[in-house]
Computed example of a mutant assay.
Amino acid sequence: MTGKDWLVRNDGQCLACDVGSQTEALSHPYRLYRFLTDLEDILDCVSDNRLRLQAIRPLVRKLLTSSSWLQIPTLAPNLETGWEVLTLYDEPFFPLTVQLVAWAPGMTSPIHNHGCWGLVALLSGEEKNTFWQRSPRPEFPDRIEPVGKCLLTPGDILCLMPDAIHHVEAIGDKPTISFNLYGETNYNQRFEFEPAQGIAKHF
């Protein structure tokens, strides 16, 4: 599965990244446990979030390309909430969460940051991301304004720095399903934003 790679900086600017060569031939599927082991090596050796994301992207693309269970996702949005999350990996005291996330067409997330590095690889559907930037005034210290958009299609990978602010909208006529990775969340720095009121609350 090929696509485009993007990085969203802490100021909301979305930059295209070099996908690089993906021509490596694999004799066996790149299974999740091998992916997790390779990922742990990166987390142990690389502390800078931007460099971590740069190193993780090729591993995710390798997983997307060779793992049939990811190419044919079966997760469906909850009929009541319009979304669903399936946790594939979340170990206590280890800074990594791996999920499949499904959104029903037309669903929109709150405006939020994650308080950690994150990566979203789209498996099916279309997802519009809108990016925001803090532009505080004394009376509204949590004021934000939109600074850009990016449409993700299957095979695209979006990397998010810890303070990147965005919201997602599932567009088109079928559910959006993504493979998501998150580092260790700093919940004191994770917020949901309300731009009309210029306020933020813990999320």
Rank of each mutant, 00 (worst) to 15 (best):
V85M: 01
E80Y: 10
E24Q: 07
S27Q: 05
D18E: 10
W83Q: 10
L75D: 06
V46K: 06
N78R: 03
R31Y: 10
A55R: 12
L75N: 05
L64H: 02
Y33F: 13
L15S: 09
L26M: 09
D48L: 12
T87R: 05
A25G: 03
L26T: 04
T37L: 12
R57I: 08
S67V: 02
Q22E: 15
L70P: 02
L43D: 09
P29G: 08
D48P: 10
K62A: 09
T74W: 00
L75E: 04
V46L: 05
L63E: 01
P73K: 02
V19N: 04
Q71V: 01
E84P: 00
Q71I: 01
D11H: 15
S68A: 08
T37F: 14
A16D: 11
L26Y: 13
D18C: 06
L15V: 15
S47H: 15
C45Y: 07
L63G: 00
S21G: 13
L32D: 02
I42R: 05
W83G: 02
L79C: 07
A55F: 09
L32R: 11
R57Y: 08
T81Y: 01
Q54L: 10
K62S: 08
T87Y: 02
E40S: 14
Y30L: 07
Q13E: 15
I56H: 00
S67I: 00
E40F: 10
H28K: 11
A76F: 03
D38F: 08
T65W: 07
L51Y: 10
L36F: 12
C14L: 06
G12P: 12
W83I: 02
V8A: 15
L75H: 05
V85C: 02
P77W: 03
L15A: 13
R50V: 14
R50Q: 15
D44G: 01
I42Q: 05
K62M: 06
Q54C: 09
S66I: 04
E24A: 14
G12C: 13
R61Y: 02
V60F: 00
T81L: 06
A55H: 14
S27H: 06
L43S: 07
T74Q: 03
A76M: 08
L26F: 14
L51S: 13
D11R: 12
V85T: 08
E24I: 11
I56D: 01
V19Q: 05
N78K: 03
G12L: 14
W83D: 04
L43M: 13
L64C: 06
G12T: 15
Q54G: 07
D48W: 10
G20I: 10
S67W: 09
F35V: 02
A76N: 06
R9C: 06
Y89S: 01
E40N: 15
T65H: 11
S21P: 08
Y89P: 00
E40H: 15
R9P: 00
T23F: 04
I56T: 03
S66H: 10
A25R: 08
T81A: 08
R9V: 01
L36T: 10
S21N: 15
S66V: 06
R52G: 06
L43V: 11
